[in-house]
């Protein structure tokens, strides 16, 4: 429960208000392995702690990467950190994406906005083919072409990965899709009985995507969501992130839709 001292190794501005930090542990060359979908508690000294998903490659054992949107006091403090600055880290916490379910199946990775960050480690893992997915498809909706996370990396991956990008608002340079992510999902040829879906993004977006996936024949237990709630202790003790009978920090943040449908559809929970 005591934060370990890390230092900022790299800071990259993804787009205005969203940045990626690469952090290394002081005095340690190797870090504990993490599972795609897990998160760390990042402590901006003097300000506070915030739960942030790991967004780098699980194979990279020397650095943890976190992509952060500057929104509250703690993330604003993290945004001010520069290379060499100290940061407190607890984790990794939570369960990850159930990567053992993908063998022989069509994997649909559906991301919205900065929800792409917790799915990126999953993409790294699935790209090495060891998990035996029959096909991997990424559907990614962003607000604007300038707000597509990891764009150059996605362009490099386009040869080996079936990627559908769409933006809510295009600009004069954008030659791709304009519209919401549910549209390409609706028209996609998906074998619902053989597919498994991993979603992360605003809850509204996930809600509409789930409706589409269900009409495509996916079962509720084959749709996995990464949830976000106000996590404090990250170990299921404080109760801040309680969601129905679950603690998002300990039982999640990844849940199958079938297991949380009652809570997911309950307003104001």
């Amino acid at each position: 429960m005591i934060p370990a001292l890390f230092r900022i190794d790299e800071r990259k501005e993804e787009f205005s208000g969203t940045f990626t930090l690469g952090i290394r542990r002081e005095g340690e060359s190797a870090l504990p392995r993490f599972k795609p979908g897990q998160f760390n508690m990042l402590y901006a000294f003097g300000t506070g702690e915030v739960a942030i998903s790991l967004s780098g490659s699980p194979a990279d054992t020397g650095v943890y990467q976190h992509t952060i949107r500057s929104q509250g006091l703690a993330t604003q403090a993290l945004a001010r950190l520069q290379k060499g600055d100290a940061i407190g880290v607890r984790g990794p916490f939570g369960c990850g994406w159930p990567i053992d379910t993908v063998a022989g199946r069509e994997v649909l990775i559906i991301a919205g906005g900065v929800g792409m960050a917790p799915l990126r480690p999953l993409l790294y893992s699935l790209r090495d083919k060891a998990h035996g997915a029959a096909r991997v498809r990424l559907f990614y909706g962003a607000r604007h072409p300038d707000e597509i996370l990891y764009r150059s990396e996605l362009e490099r991956w386009a040869d080996s990965l079936d990627i559908t990008l769409t933006v809510d608002q295009g600009d004069s340079t954008w030659r791709g899709r304009v519209g919401v992510i549910t549209q390409p999902l609706e028209t996609a040829d998906i074998n619902g009985g053989k597919a498994v879906a991993f979603l992360c993004g605003p809850e509204v977006m996930m809600r509409f995507c789930i409706q589409t996936l269900l009409t495509k024949g996916l079962s509720e237990s084959d749709i996995y969501l990464s949830m976000e709630r106000n996590m404090k202790c990250a170990t299921g003790l404080c109760g801040h992130c309680q969601w129905g009978p679950n603690f998002v920090c300990k039982d999640g943040p990844v849940f199958s839709y079938g297991s949380v449908r009652s809570w997911f559809n309950l307003r104001a929970l």
Partner: peptide, 8 residues
């Protein structure tokens, strides 16, 4: 959904 600007 576009009007909601959910990624803002």
């Amino acid at each position: 959904m576009q009007l909601m600007d959910i990624y803002s």
